Amino acid sequence: MMETGQVRDFAVGIEDSAIEDLRRRLAHARLPEKETVEDWDQGIPLAYVEELTAYWRDEYDMRRVGTVLSQWPNHLIAIDGLDIHFLHIRSPEADATPLVMTHGWPGSVLEFADVIGPLTDPVAHGGKAEDAFHLVLPSLPGYGFSGKPEAPGWSVLKIAMAWRALMAALGYERFCAQGGDWGSAVTIAIGALAGENIDGDPCRGIHSNMVWVTPPDEVMANPTEEEQAGLDRIAWYRTKDHGYSTQQSTRPQTLGYALADSPVGQMAWIVEKFHGWSDCGGHPENVYSRDRLLDNVMLYWLTNSAASSARLYWESFNSGEMPQIHMPMGGSIFPKDILTPSRRWAEKTFRNIVYWNRLEQGGHFAAMERAELFVEELRAWQRAATG
């Protein structure tokens, strides 16, 4: 059993000195020369970095991130000695389904800003009372306002155990779990902890918008057109987009020195992924506003969490083969995500798929990019998972 402390209220505060320091750094940023190509093939283009830097320095509201987060109840709870920050938004519907929803990297709880209202109060947003969720949105260890582990051990599996302890501490005897990116890995681990004892487990079902599975032999040998597209996406990721992951899973501390010292570096490191992993037609601002992009960057910058967030890769990569999952599971496949497996592909790991859908739009940060589609997916999965 994991030890849990008392739930404490938390107020998001931004010091004047932090804003002054950030403005000074942005004003004196030293940038490299222009890339030698006319697209994003070598990384985020200089011209766009200059635009974002100028906007961040001169026009962006440096306190926006605090204003956004303070719309909802913020809390801290110590779990095994580490403070975990979380949002807890109860539905007006008393019988709502408790749901712990987990973000990934380079995201944050801010990804869920546009779906909190529709998920917790569906009647006010075109849904039905039975679609309602009580939401628990924790920040991963080392991310945002959660504590930074001071010793190894906070792997995906330990986080899954912590989230179970969190839900119990909040009084939820039964709950569901959802996530994408690292949040998907945590969610899958929550399901794996139940083993085959589904009826006796407090978790009733899991959902992922990035289904974390390895293609089985039969897919590799004879892929369908849909599966070949998924394999091609993995091949692109491995050959053109995987460098960040290798660095964060092997030398997160070394990377941290650069990103902790340079807000422009931190911004570029993050925003590049909102381009490459989104269904944005070539530019992230086709689907995200500059303010929303910078809100997320600000959360990393203000909490100095470049290294601590990257350590999750070091903790969890190559941690062993995934077991079979017997928990009722749902998958929503957005076409521009990193992993876009078929149902056949997923069935080798997930033995009880109750909902599966492949969408025509959207990418990795689905809740932030396509909020309406994301909400409808969770509602459809909930109906299938809970009957």
Score class of each variant (00 low, 15 high):
residue 111 E to W: 15
residue 158 K to M: 01
residue 121 D to R: 05
residue 147 G to Y: 11
residue 146 S to C: 13
residue 121 D to I: 11
residue 160 A to W: 06
residue 113 A to K: 15
residue 136 V to A: 06
residue 163 W to P: 01
residue 113 A to D: 14
residue 164 R to T: 03
residue 123 V to I: 12
residue 131 D to L: 15
residue 166 L to T: 03
residue 113 A to R: 12
residue 116 I to P: 03
residue 148 K to C: 05
residue 133 F to K: 09
residue 123 V to E: 14
residue 140 L to F: 07
residue 132 A to M: 08
residue 152 P to S: 02
residue 128 K to C: 14
residue 126 G to L: 07
residue 115 V to G: 12
residue 156 V to A: 00
residue 112 F to G: 02
residue 168 A to I: 15
residue 166 L to Y: 08
residue 149 P to L: 01
residue 111 E to N: 11
residue 154 W to A: 00
residue 152 P to M: 02
residue 126 G to P: 11
residue 118 P to R: 11
residue 149 P to W: 01
residue 119 L to P: 12
residue 129 A to K: 11
residue 123 V to A: 15
residue 145 F to V: 14
residue 143 Y to R: 02
residue 169 A to F: 06
residue 155 S to W: 03
residue 127 G to S: 12
residue 121 D to V: 10
residue 125 H to M: 09
residue 156 V to L: 01
residue 118 P to I: 05
residue 114 D to S: 10
residue 163 W to N: 01
residue 157 L to T: 02
residue 146 S to Y: 08
residue 142 G to T: 10
residue 111 E to M: 07
residue 137 L to G: 02
residue 135 L to P: 11
residue 135 L to A: 08
residue 147 G to A: 10
residue 140 L to W: 12
residue 163 W to D: 00
residue 148 K to W: 08
residue 155 S to V: 04
residue 117 G to I: 14
residue 130 E to L: 13
residue 140 L to Y: 12
residue 136 V to S: 04
residue 118 P to W: 11
residue 162 A to C: 05
residue 116 I to A: 03
residue 152 P to F: 02
residue 114 D to Y: 08
residue 167 M to W: 00
residue 164 R to K: 05
residue 158 K to R: 15
residue 142 G to L: 06
residue 117 G to L: 15
residue 160 A to I: 14
residue 126 G to E: 14
residue 132 A to K: 11
residue 119 L to K: 09
residue 151 A to D: 04
residue 147 G to W: 05
residue 144 G to N: 12
residue 152 P to R: 06
residue 111 E to K: 09
residue 158 K to D: 00
